[in-house]
């Protein structure tokens, strides 16, 4: 029955492609989380009247973030090819997609982190400094925990965007479901494979959204 509906499907290869998509998304999501939090904190702390108010640094970080966000992802991948080659030693395969994925998603996430941090009640930060807290304490015990639901739900949004990015990265041979659909579907006209890949990607997106929402709800005590 399934064989008749999807004559061109090679389930073993589809499984490997799904694994590659998940691998790329999760690893780059971890990288994006770390780099994005760093960027978001820098943007938040160096802003006017911020804890580390620093106009020059703020302008530099802000401009970098804006420029990286302005470059369409497919072009970013091509621009980063020499850098990827230097870093990973190859420009093909799932690992080669990671630098572009992280550099593409981290600035986006960084901006969302900045917004989440700005929503932390100023009074609470003030209360912490009135208790004699160091900036480090304020970052790790006030700013990040208090904005955690926002950080997680924004990470969910970013993760889903990343799943889309991995499909684009497939075009330059990164592997994964996007690559698979492009190769079998577009080049060999196997529409059934494109359909299966779509269903699998949608499924992954749903799982991400569900998990993200669940964690956000668990964390949110407001």
């Amino acid at each position: 029955m399934i064989k008749q509906l999807f004559p061109n499907a090679n389930w073993n290869e589809l499984w490997i492609a799904s694994y590659e998509t998940l691998y790329m998304t999760i690893i780059s999501l971890v990288g994006t989380f770390v780099l994005g939090i760093l960027l978001g904190l820098l943007l938040y702390l160096t802003t006017k009247n911020g804890i580390w108010e620093n106009k020059i640094l703020h302008v530099i970080v802000s401009a970098t973030v804006n420029i990286l966000r302005a470059i369409p992802f497919i072009i970013l991948i091509i621009l980063l090819l020499p850098f990827t080659d230097f870093l990973v030693g190859s420009i093909r395969g799932p690992n080669a997609a990671l630098p572009a994925l992280i550099i593409g998603a981290a600035p986006f996430y960084g901006r969302l982190v900045e917004v989440s941090l700005r929503e932390v009640d100023k009074g609470v930060i003030e209360a912490a400094s009135a208790m004699g807290a160091k900036t480090r304490t304020i970052i790790f015990k006030v700013l990040l925990p208090e904005s955690m639901p926002g950080l997680v739900s924004n990470l969910t949004v970013t993760g889903i965007a990343l799943i889309g990015y991995t499909a684009i990265a497939g075009v330059i041979g990164a592997g994964g479901l996007g690559d698979f659909a492009y190769y079998y579907g577009f080049q060999r006209r196997a529409t059934d494979v494109v359909f299966i890949c779509t269903v699998l990607i949608v499924l992954i997106v749903f799982i991400f959204q569900f998990t993200g929402d669940w964690i956000t709800n668990k964390l949110d005590k407001r």
Partner: peptide, 25 residues
């Protein structure tokens, strides 16, 4: 110091909120 709008950390329980200045110290 106490404040008009209390300024408690909503991510912490009552116990953890009161423990915060002790952690700082």
């Amino acid at each position: 110091m106490i404040f008009q709008h209390f300024n408690l950390l909503w991510s912490r329980t009552v116990h953890e909120n009161i423990a915060f200045p002790l952690e700082i110290a």
